[in-house]
Design a protein around this nucleic acid. Structure first.
Lengths: 137, 137
DNA sequence: TTATTAGTATGTACTCATTACAATAATATA
DNA sequence: TATATTATTGTAATGAGTACATACTAATAA
């Protein structure tokens, strides 16, 4: 199964009609480690879909997050970043260059107290600091 | 030592001159569990300081975060929330009512992989889901 | 006391991410 | 095909956050 087919079947599995915009956006999110913003998604896909509007990108990423096909995260800027890797992992944002990195984390080991009566649906671990590249400068 | 004095000495310990606005904002943050936004801080303190501007609130909370006297967190809306509790603890945001709760978490147990060459200065654990009050409705 | 200076607060205007909405286009169903 | 439903587009509006110039306050020196 190639990339496009896999995006289509993912969308179908969530009862989302696979339009060109949706396929391309999901496919793009699945094959980047950049945690792109709406702006970045729009800019990257515009050559392939010249009529793509930002409104569509906003609507589509919202749809993907709601369907559990993507994850929404906020960095220290007030701008939404999207990630199609929905497995358990942490995010690290460099406060100097703003880049967001993934890292492995064992959330199962985390002991929490006071959440007994809460229905937790999403667990995020978000670290901040300086990345190796910025540290070496 | 009363509340005002404790806010003043906290500010002094960070070499921040304790003006009325700074004292009141830090004091307010220290005695709420609401994780207020700039809007909420401004509205709450306006009766006490009728001339307080939002620009001052923005500047002051930025100062407090930079000095390590407060913590900045983003919920699922693109709006900054502030918390003067700088001890290790997690945050839970209810996706229905938007309220943010604190919970105890043992971050020392968290095993991470891939951050060996990163300088981590801040660790956040952010959960989402439904709170007991919304669950019971 | 007055003058000077540095630090603090204010208000306005601006930027920019996000959303609302109405109009148009595309797709599915009969 | 015709019709209903859903998707996309563009524009206008909202609202958080910032920049900046002005006004204020407090401390120090003369």
């Amino acid at each position: 199964m190639n990339k496009v087919e896999s995006a289509i079947s993912l969308l179908r599995s969530k009862s989302i009609r696979p339009s060109i915009a949706r396929i391309k956006i999901l496919e793009y999110l699945s094959h980047t480690t950049e945690h792109p913003t709406v702006e970045m998604i729009h800019t990257s896909l515009l050559p392939a879909i010249p009529t793509l509007s930002k409104a569509t990108v906003y609507k589509t990423v919202g749809l993907l997050v709601e369907a559990g096909l993507a994850r929404l995260l906020y960095g220290e800027d007030c701008e939404a970043h999207y990630d199609a890797d929905i497995s358990d992992h942490g995010h690290f944002q460099c406060t100097r260059c703003g880049k967001i990195y993934d890292f492995a984390v064992n959330l199962a080991l985390l002991e929490t107290e006071g959440l007994e009566r809460f229905a937790v649906t999403e667990r995020n671990v978000f670290f901040r600091g300086a990345c190796p590249r910025c540290l070496s400068e």
